[in-house]
Amino acid sequence: QVALSRTQVCGILREELFQGDAFHQSDTHIFIIMGASGDLAKKKIYPTIWWLFRDGLLPENTFIVGYARSRLTVADIRKQSEPFFKATPEEKLKLEDFFARNSYVAGQYDDAASYQRLNSHMNALHLGSQANRLFYLALPPTVYEAVTKNIHESCMSQIGWNRIIVEKPFGRDLQSSDRLSNHISSLFREDQIYRIDHYLGKEMVQNLMVLRFANRIFGPIWNRDNIACVILTFKEPFGTEGRGGYFDEFGIIRDVMQNHLLQMLCLVAMEKPASTNSDDVRDEKVKVLKCISEVQANNVVLGQYVGNPDGEGEATKGYLDDPTVPRGSTTATFAAVVLYVENERWDGVPFILRCGKALNERKAEVRLQFHDVAGDIFHQQCKRNELVIRVQPNEAVYTKMMTKKPGMFFNPEESELDLTYGNRYKNVKLPDAYERLILDVFCGSQMHFVRSDELREAWRIFTPLLHQIELEKPKPIPYIYGSRGPTEADELMKRVGFQYEGTYKWVNPHKL
């Protein structure tokens, strides 16, 4: 086992960053958080920038500027975001240094004079007029057009580079997404736009490419001749908990499936790229999406959770019991969808996408189930092999396979070949997804960000279904809070070829 401390991990990262040409360590950078008073800024962006600063992973002359409508001070920003920093008493001095680099400007999102004030403020910072500028839009999409237009007109660096990070949702359907994309691309070049999907920053999602293309053993079996089906799962054990009003506007397909799960599907299904260059990788992902037809209604199961009468606390409440959810809402909190990649490698292999709230566990994984062994000599005792990439929690890679049961006879039983990170790298604290992705933006690497043509294809696949749901308002199937979801989803999976045995229990190697 390799035991690495946080300091050692960050030392390795620093070495990698400083050796590259793309990370300008000594240049002045300004990180501007648009929507600095909001939840995302408070819980994710400010803490992430602090962790990067604490670990010495930001360029040395980096300033952080918050911008929002609320009249706040840096002290206010500190008060609301610091509880999420997880700072230790030993880091007190470092924390003071961090907040000394912070400033805040209040202004409207659609007022040109406010942006001119913001620009004057940035120019007044040390070497601010020639600094590289990175704008993070932690804002609702309704203000994107006004904000990007004003940034472009008043706040661009004339000497350094300018980059803009856009948070999902990128529209509600193909038409609104196209409108937003066309607007942003009329102001910024594609190499300046970073559409963030934080799932692409997760260690195991990034590991998929290495697993596939750096190991000879997987190449020959990664196709329709050997793989019976692919299941991509995202499960949350909690409901909307008072935030249903926002969720109800989008629903589970827009929230998770059309982005996170579809991105994971691309990494499983794509061909080997010409290189690890950002556009070479994204070219292959677009090719996969172009091979997927629009979702067919007979390959869809929609569910909505109801309270568990035997549960406790939140578990007793259904989705419609959330006071922020519109009365009688038919918005799905669970969806199972089957897609097919219609190309030579994957023809006929079902890709089953499942996601839901208020389920029995927290889990995100990719599961490849292989065909049955031909010419069975073990009297149907063999179960199908599976390769599982567990994204969260407890990152893991393992192969479910058959071995001989101890004893006199040739009785096979299920076991696993474990390729888990935790076994080799004991207690290594890896940077989280937002840390990686923000560092990628500083480096100018777009590999783990969504390109406009990729986004367009993703919406093309799901828009007809979303429009049909909005028009017909089908009643989702009720499922109990804390269950596996509607049984109809299991029946759909069985119908397209997935075999669920229920006889195997994964042993978490992190707890051995």
Rank of each mutant, 00 (worst) to 15 (best):
R254D: 06
R254Q: 00
D255E: 02
V256I: 14
M257S: 10
H260Q: 00
H260S: 03
M264N: 01
L265H: 01
V268W: 04
V268D: 01
E271D: 09
K272H: 07
P273Q: 01
P273M: 06
S275G: 07
T276S: 11
N277E: 12
D280Y: 11
V281M: 11
R282D: 01
D283V: 00
L289Q: 05
K290E: 14
S293Y: 10
V295A: 15
N299R: 11
V300I: 12
V301K: 09
V301S: 09
L302P: 03
G303N: 06
Q304Y: 07
V306P: 00
N308H: 14
P309Q: 13
D310H: 13
G311R: 14
E312N: 15
K317T: 15
K317N: 11
P323R: 15
T324D: 08
V325N: 05
G328A: 10
A335M: 06
A335H: 00
V337A: 13
V337C: 15
V338C: 12
L339G: 06
L339R: 00
E344V: 07
W346H: 03
P350F: 03
C355P: 04
K357E: 03
A358F: 04
N360L: 04
E361L: 05
R362P: 09
K363N: 08
K363D: 06
K363R: 10
A364Y: 00
V366T: 06
L368W: 04
L368N: 05
Q369N: 06
D372C: 07
V373Y: 06
A374E: 15
A374Y: 13
G375P: 11
D376Q: 10
Q380S: 11
Q381M: 10
K383R: 12
R384D: 00
L387P: 01
I389G: 03
I389W: 01
R390P: 02
R390A: 13
N394Q: 14
T399F: 09
T399A: 14
K400Q: 04
M401W: 11
K405F: 15
G407D: 12
M408A: 06
N411F: 07
E416C: 06
L419Q: 09
Y421L: 12
Y421P: 01
G422H: 11
K426A: 13
K426H: 08
L430I: 08
Y434D: 01
E435H: 09
E435F: 03
R436L: 05
D440Q: 10
F442P: 00
Q446E: 00
H448Q: 09
R451E: 04
E457T: 08
E457A: 09
A458M: 06
R460E: 08
T463I: 01
H467M: 11
Q468G: 13
Q468D: 12
I469F: 14
L471N: 14
L471G: 11
K473F: 11
K475W: 11
P476N: 08
S483Y: 05
R484K: 04
P486A: 04
P486F: 03
D490W: 07
L492D: 00
L492W: 10
M493E: 13
K494L: 12
G497P: 00
F498E: 03
Y500S: 06
Y500A: 06
E501W: 09
K505Y: 08
W506K: 05
